[in-house]
Deep mutational scan, measured.
Amino acid sequence: FIDQHRAALIARVTNVEWLLDALYGKVLTDEQYQAVRAEPTNPSKMRKLFSFTPAWNWTCKDLLLQALRESQSYLVEDLER
């Protein structure tokens, strides 16, 4: 899901800070967390977050999807259609 809908997630996720907090310490290191937060816009934050995903396994991507479902369920539901 995460890889399949990358472009839509970059464009449409609005609550990136919540995602970062949910992933911090589980998937994201402090350095990665700070790097994403330093980006000026939500799309650039999501691009930076996605720059780390090639090194993630399915469990990490599932944690991101779970966080998306909790914070932006309407968006996930729309993309699952």
Rank of each mutant, 00 (worst) to 15 (best):
1 F>V: 01
2 I>M: 11
3 D>S: 06
3 D>Q: 01
5 H>V: 12
6 R>I: 08
6 R>D: 04
6 R>F: 06
8 A>I: 11
9 L>I: 08
10 I>R: 05
10 I>G: 03
10 I>D: 04
12 R>V: 02
12 R>I: 02
12 R>S: 07
13 V>G: 05
14 T>M: 05
14 T>R: 11
14 T>E: 14
15 N>V: 00
16 V>L: 07
17 E>S: 06
17 E>N: 10
17 E>H: 04
18 W>D: 15
19 L>I: 12
19 L>V: 13
20 L>M: 08
21 D>L: 04
21 D>H: 12
22 A>S: 13
22 A>D: 10
22 A>C: 12
22 A>E: 12
23 L>R: 02
24 Y>F: 06
24 Y>Q: 11
25 G>D: 11
25 G>M: 08
25 G>L: 08
26 K>C: 10
26 K>M: 06
28 L>T: 01
28 L>N: 02
28 L>I: 12
30 D>R: 11
30 D>Q: 11
31 E>H: 02
32 Q>F: 02
32 Q>R: 01
33 Y>H: 03
33 Y>Q: 06
34 Q>F: 08
35 A>V: 09
36 V>T: 00
36 V>H: 02
37 R>M: 15
38 A>P: 01
38 A>S: 13
39 E>Q: 10
39 E>D: 00
41 T>S: 11
41 T>G: 07
41 T>K: 03
42 N>Y: 01
42 N>C: 05
43 P>S: 13
44 S>M: 14
44 S>T: 13
44 S>G: 13
45 K>I: 03
45 K>W: 02
46 M>V: 09
46 M>F: 02
47 R>L: 10
47 R>N: 11
47 R>F: 03
47 R>K: 14
48 K>P: 04
49 L>W: 01
49 L>I: 08
49 L>P: 04
49 L>Y: 02
50 F>H: 00
51 S>V: 03
52 F>D: 00
52 F>A: 03
53 T>V: 15
53 T>L: 14
54 P>Q: 13
54 P>N: 11
54 P>I: 12
54 P>T: 14
54 P>M: 10
55 A>N: 15
55 A>E: 15
56 W>L: 06
57 N>G: 11
57 N>W: 07
57 N>A: 09
58 W>R: 15
58 W>F: 15
58 W>D: 15
59 T>E: 15
60 C>S: 15
61 K>G: 05
61 K>L: 01
61 K>H: 14
62 D>C: 10
62 D>L: 08
62 D>R: 11
63 L>N: 06
63 L>V: 11
64 L>W: 00
65 L>Y: 13
65 L>Q: 02
65 L>N: 06
66 Q>E: 12
67 A>E: 07
67 A>G: 04
67 A>D: 00
67 A>T: 08
68 L>K: 13
68 L>C: 04
68 L>G: 03
68 L>A: 03
69 R>K: 14
69 R>M: 07
71 S>D: 07
71 S>G: 07
71 S>E: 00
73 S>F: 06
73 S>P: 15
73 S>R: 14
76 V>L: 10
77 E>V: 04
77 E>P: 04
77 E>K: 10
78 D>I: 12
78 D>A: 10
78 D>K: 10
80 E>V: 08
80 E>F: 07
80 E>H: 14
80 E>A: 10
